[in-house]
Design a protein around this nucleic acid. Structure first.
Length: 563
DNA sequence: GCAGCTATAAACATGT
DNA sequence: CACATGTTTATAGCTG
């Protein structure tokens, strides 16, 4: 009954951009909830029937007997509820349920979302209350207390994810209550000056949060409200599960991190043998960059989550550039993917002004824009730039004037700005670890033969539109969503600026559709941009193994028009 | 600490 | 004069 897609949640996250993820998750969430509801409804109906019959039967029976039956029933109900909770919990863990409304704020949040949303847990807990139990946590939290509802037969009507107002209880420290509950199992014993379940003046028992003036009062509360009973045990069990799941998640993430680090580290130092895998058949990319190994290569460690590609990378490797720089992340692919997101969310795009300007210019068929058109592109593409216009417009002008890569051309309709790719590439020398001079040489076109993978990678990174995006690819399934990104990849480099008019800009519009294929693109244009004999282009063949990472570079290419 | 890159702010010039 | 467009300078934060 799972999701249509076979991807694991993590994979999806890697592949999808935050907005996409959200949309997808919401869909799935709706679907699953529906299924769940049906399932539980049936169960509850059965239980009700059972209860009725029991009650009727009970009329003739002594009170005690009835009590026992009811107890049994309650336990059954409890079990069912636990099952339900667990089910929901597992769904949550998978990220399929209960995305918080609040989260949409930024792209960066994607990753974290993957795991169980801590804030959701308390809710779960609340729902966990055993039916028959006395009211409970006394503190009836505003908003949601599922406690009551859960107990009743209708519980699922209100699936956890609901209640927006939820969570709240803003703990002073801002942490969800759950965090602290880790050791609840051991819970009941109190420690002298403090107690793991007590903090900031409140009980940290999952779902409780009752205020206690001091430890003594808390202890008392603990013993009365969280004594050893079915409910507490059940909560413990759930907590155990939570911990377990988190551990699993942690293990997975750690593994991923390791793989990423291992991968990134390679780049600087060694030419990297490994993976390079599969260079695509068509290799001879003019650009000399490595192309995406398509899915094949990568082990699973997608380099970057779509959304934040760059951000993720930066963290890891030694050689990364400033985070804001798009160099690391192909602006176009990222834009393509998160296009809608940036368009609507007031989030500052993780690209430099220069890269954005370049992108704007390259997206046009003529590869030239007037200042005003550039402004328009900014506002059209990014909600963020719909505000503070004075600031960013000044920055845009400043960048245009400052960077040699932006060339002002007098035109009939006034003056337009174009991009000089050569200059643009020059701007930042490859980061590599090697000697700077060497780098320079290479760049200048001298020793291209000598390039090693890292160099290439660096070059590529620097901007070529490149091609590959491993991350996205591998998840082969991400299909549709990814498609856009590919495009970009596909696009060849941008034509030389100089030729502005003539150049054949983006070549392949068509690629959109396909998902993962490597595109073989046209090698044509790209290369030229580089000065002279440049380096790189050497075909892949010569270079051998392109560093794995290159992929990341993907490209920023112009061609694709996002919007 | 330095260099390079970027963002931001602001002064100033020029043209419409 | 107001405004848009460009250029230039200064300053600060980051990162390698």
């Amino acid at each position: 009954m799972m999701s249509p897609q076979m991807l694991t949640p993590q994979q999806m996250q890697q592949i999808l951009s935050p907005p996409q993820l959200q949309a997808l998750l919401q869909q799935q969430q709706a679907l699953m909830l529906q299924q769940l509801q049906e399932y539980y409804k049936k169960q509850q109906e059965q239980l009700h029937l059972q209860l009725l019959t029991q009650q009727q039967a009970g009329k003739q029976q002594p009170k005690e007997a009835l009590g026992n039956k009811q107890l049994a029933f309650q336990q059954q109900l409890l079990q069912m509820q636990q099952l339900q909770q667990q089910h929901l919990l597992s769904l949550q863990r998978q990220g399929l349920v209960s995305l918080q409304p609040s989260q949409a704020s930024g792209p960066l949040q994607t990753l974290p979302q993957a795991a169980v949303c801590p804030t959701d847990l308390p809710q779960l807990w609340k729902g966990e209350g055993a039916p028959g139990q006395p009211a409970e946590d006394s503190v009836k939290q505003e908003g949601l207390d599922l406690t009551g509802t859960a107990a009743t037969a209708t519980s699922f009507a209100a699936p956890p994810k609901v209640s927006p107002p939820l969570s709240h209880h803003p703990l002073p420290n801002g942490q969800p209550a759950v965090h602290t509950s880790r050791r609840d199992s051991s819970s009941h014993e109190e420690t002298p000056g403090s107690h793991p379940l007590y903090g900031h003046g409140e009980c940290k028992w999952p779902g409780c949060e009752a205020l206690c003036e001091d430890l003594g009062q808390f202890i008392k509360h603990l013993n009365t409200e969280h004594a050893l009973d079915d409910r507490s045990t059940a909560q413990c069990r759930v907590q155990m599960q939570v911990v377990q799941q988190l551990e699993i998640q942690l293990a997975k993430e750690s593994e991923r991190l390791q793989a990423m680090m291992a991968h990134l580290h390679m780049r600087p130092s060694e030419p990297k043998p490994f993976s390079q895998p599969v260079t695509v058949s068509a290799d001879p990319f003019p650009d000399g960059l490595v192309h995406p190994p398509t899915s094949a290569a990568a082990p699973v460690t997608p380099l970057r989550p779509p959304g934040l590609g760059s951000a993720a990378l930066h963290g890891g490797g030694p050689t990364r550039r400033r985070s804001s720089d798009k160099f690391c992340s192909p602006i176009s692919s990222e834009l393509a993917q998160n296009h809608e997101f940036y368009k609507n969310a007031d989030v500052r795009p993780p690209f430099t002004y220069a890269s954005l300007i370049r992108q704007a210019i390259l997206e046009t068929p003529d590869r030239q824009l007037t200042l005003n058109e550039i402004y328009n592109w900014f506002t059209r593409m990014f909600a963020y730039f719909r505000r503070n216009t004075a600031t960013w417009k000044n920055a845009v002008r400043h960048n245009l004037s400052l960077h040699k890569c932006f060339v002002r051309v007098e035109n009939v309709k006034g003056a337009v700005w174009t991009v000089d790719e050569r200059e643009y590439q020059k701007r930042r020398p490859p980061k590599m670890t090697g000697s700077p001079t060497l780098v320079k040489n290479m760049i200048s076109g001298l020793s291209y033969g000598a390039l090693n993978a890292s160099y290439q990678a660096a070059l590529a990174e620097s901007s070529f539109p490149l091609l590959n995006s491993p991350g996205m690819l591998n998840p082969g399934s991400a299909s549709s969503l990814l498609s856009l990104s590919h495009e970009d990849m596909g696009t060849p480099g941008e034509p030389l600026p100089s030729n502005g008019s003539s150049s054949p800009p983006r070549l392949s519009p068509p690629q959109y559709s396909h998902q993962v294929q490597v595109k073989e693109e046209p090698a044509e244009a790209e290369e030229d941009r580089r000065p002279g004999p440049p380096l790189g282009h050497p075909n892949p063949s010569s270079l051998g193994p392109p560093p794995p990472e290159d992929r990341e570079l993907e490209e920023e290419l112009p061609g694709e028009e996002l919007s």
